[in-house]
């Protein structure tokens, strides 16, 4: 409850120092500043509320199990320990799980970027009988929840003899209806004249796709990339079922495996693991944030 007062104090003096300097029409000026200050206060409150759980996670990862179980809760670790982290790095081989997660996520992202844009291009820019119907089918599969296809998918993968291999972890996710939809919508907006010009110049369809259309698709590709990466990185149930030995487990599976027992949870380990799992995601987002916001805005306008 200290945050609102903290945020109020730096904001209000500025309002006061501004007004005497400007002098004319002080009343009007104040009326303009008030709502702005209020907006900032609300925004800061929103940010604090959003960040609070993350702060709890980060601080909690340095606490002992005893401190985490105590009531009333403590915010600042009384007796900070690196035990939770060192456990992940020494006895639990987090590097293996990290590698698996990264491999699966990267391959899934590349697959989606390639296949979804190919299908999207065909559905957006080529004419052939049954195109509308094909697009409808893609849209319908978007409505089917993943849990319904979960068991049949697993049976399929196991009949292919792929259980407990890396392909089992990424093969089913290399293309998805959402990605196709996203790419098709964006590509529909690319003027036909550009493509026709390339065709007149004698470019093959593949060349048009790779050299003309793809370079224009930066924003939706960034969105698709981030969304796919996130989904793959956070996926829990599929890798749990498809990987049958520990060396193929991904981070979320490992996190659940080591931190939660039958009716006892090792909270410190869980929090430290969560910090390690989300750090790459946050870094990725910071790096790609510009494209991400651009593309959300761009697709929003369409």
């Amino acid at each position: 409850m200290t945050s609102p007062t903290e945020t109020l104090t730096p904001a209000s003096p500025r309002a006061e120092t501004d007004t005497p300097g400007v002098r004319p029409r002080p009343g009007k000026r104040r009326r303009r500043i008030r709502p702005q200050t209020l907006t900032y206060v609300l925004l800061v409150l929103g940010v604090v509320a959003t960040l609070l759980p993350f702060a709890w996670m980060l601080l909690g990862s340095f606490k002992t199990q005893g401190e985490l179980l105590r009531r009333p809760i403590t915010w600042w670790p009384e007796d900070p320990t690196l035990e939770n982290y060192s456990q992940w790095f020494t006895s639990l081989h987090i590097d293996t799980f990290f590698f698996n997660s990264l491999l699966v996520a990267v391959v899934t992202v590349l697959g989606n970027l390639l296949f979804c844009s190919m299908v999207g291009y065909v559905l957006a820019k080529m004419d052939f009988p049954g195109k509308k119907f094909l697009f409808l089918i893609v849209m319908v599969t978007l409505m089917v929840p993943g849990v319904v296809t979960f068991v049949p998918l697993f049976v399929m993968v196991s009949k292919l003899g792929l259980v407990n291999t890396y392909p089992a972890l990424f093969l089913p996710f290399l293309a998805g209806p959402l990605g196709v939809f996203l790419m098709r919508q964006f590509m529909t907006g690319i003027p036909d004249s550009i493509i026709e010009a390339a065709r007149i110049d004698g470019a093959s369809e593949l060349r048009i796709f790779t050299r003309v259309v793809m370079p224009l698709c930066g924003p939706p590709l960034a969105t698709l990339g981030i969304l796919t990466f996130l989904t793959s990185w956070n996926n829990f149930l599929w890798p749990l079922v498809a990987a049958q030995s520990q060396d193929k487990y991904t981070l979320p599976v490992a996190l659940s495996l080591f931190s939660t027992g039958q009716d006892a949870t090792n909270y410190g380990l869980l929090l430290a693991g969560s910090v390690l799992v989300i750090t790459p995601i946050i870094l990725l987002f910071i790096m790609l944030q510009r494209y991400f916001i651009q593309s959300v805005a761009a697709t929003g306008i369409k």
Partner: peptide, 19 residues
């Protein structure tokens, strides 16, 4: 192979279905 407790039931279920 160690299996997480909270999802073990699912894992056995699918493993049995998939043979």
């Amino acid at each position: 192979t160690a299996v997480p407790w909270d999802a073990a039931h699912n894992k056995y279920q699918t493993a049995i279905a998939g043979g």
